[in-house]
Computed example of a mutant assay.
Amino acid sequence: MARRPLGQLEAEVLAALAAAGGPVSTADLRARIPGEPAYTTINTILFRLHAKHLVTRVRQGRHYLYRLAVDESRLVADRMRDHLRHASDPSSVLSRFVQSLSAEEEDALRAVLRRSGGEPEAPA
């Protein structure tokens, strides 16, 4: 099995927690992540996320149940902004990002830009 890029598994764990909608165990979370990562790997990621205050946990018997402690959309947006801030050419990065969007994602972006005043209304 190919190794994931650094940070990708953490992002997948956060996304799986957001989709779960409630507290989940490490074993349940592991089953939600493609590629069959090791239980200990998921547990390590969860401990790190807990230390960063991105997840909360409650003890249930000998194990913990985990829940996302932050808004997923804000978390992802913050990561995107960090990547742009460190790019030598942010405009080029944004251009490539927009070119990679599906039609539905592009429509959603246009709607957000219209609501925020960043794009003129489309002609009728």
Rank of each mutant, 00 (worst) to 15 (best):
59 R>G: 06
56 T>F: 00
21 G>W: 04
28 D>Q: 15
100 S>Q: 10
39 Y>P: 04
79 R>Y: 10
23 P>A: 13
82 D>T: 09
124 A>T: 12
104 E>M: 05
74 R>H: 10
10 E>T: 09
45 I>D: 02
9 L>F: 03
100 S>Y: 03
115 R>C: 01
57 R>M: 02
100 S>N: 08
7 G>W: 04
103 A>G: 13
70 V>P: 03
120 P>Q: 07
87 A>L: 11
9 L>M: 08
80 M>V: 15
67 R>C: 05
63 H>L: 08
106 E>Y: 12
122 A>L: 15
49 L>I: 02
93 V>L: 15
20 A>F: 01
28 D>R: 13
49 L>D: 03
118 G>H: 14
120 P>S: 10
83 H>C: 09
74 R>G: 06
55 V>C: 07
105 E>R: 13
62 R>P: 07
58 V>S: 10
118 G>Y: 12
72 E>Y: 15
52 K>R: 14
12 E>R: 08
83 H>Q: 14
78 D>Y: 10
77 A>Y: 10
60 Q>T: 09
19 A>Y: 06
65 L>S: 09
50 H>C: 03
28 D>I: 00
92 S>D: 14
20 A>V: 03
94 L>C: 15
51 A>L: 05
13 V>Y: 00
120 P>G: 09
102 S>V: 06
77 A>N: 05
76 V>H: 05
95 S>M: 11
23 P>L: 01
45 I>W: 02
30 R>Y: 01
89 D>F: 11
74 R>F: 03
21 G>Y: 07
23 P>C: 01
48 R>N: 10
114 R>G: 01
82 D>S: 13
2 A>C: 02
78 D>M: 12
91 S>L: 15
121 E>Y: 06
37 P>E: 00
10 E>I: 00
122 A>H: 14
71 D>N: 13
112 V>L: 15
118 G>A: 10
109 L>E: 12
11 A>K: 03
102 S>F: 05
67 R>Q: 11
101 L>H: 06
57 R>L: 02
80 M>I: 14
34 P>Q: 04
103 A>K: 11
65 L>Y: 06
29 L>M: 09
80 M>G: 13
30 R>V: 04
85 R>H: 14
66 Y>N: 07
115 R>P: 00
31 A>G: 08
15 A>E: 13
55 V>Y: 01
39 Y>L: 10
66 Y>V: 06
27 A>V: 08
69 A>E: 12
82 D>G: 08
48 R>G: 00
33 I>D: 07
35 G>F: 01
24 V>T: 06
30 R>L: 02
51 A>R: 12
94 L>D: 09
16 A>M: 07
41 T>F: 04
24 V>D: 09
5 P>Y: 06
88 S>L: 12
117 G>Y: 12
82 D>L: 11
53 H>E: 11
25 S>M: 03
8 Q>I: 02
44 T>M: 01
13 V>M: 01
64 Y>V: 02
34 P>V: 01
68 L>G: 03
8 Q>H: 03
67 R>E: 08
118 G>D: 13
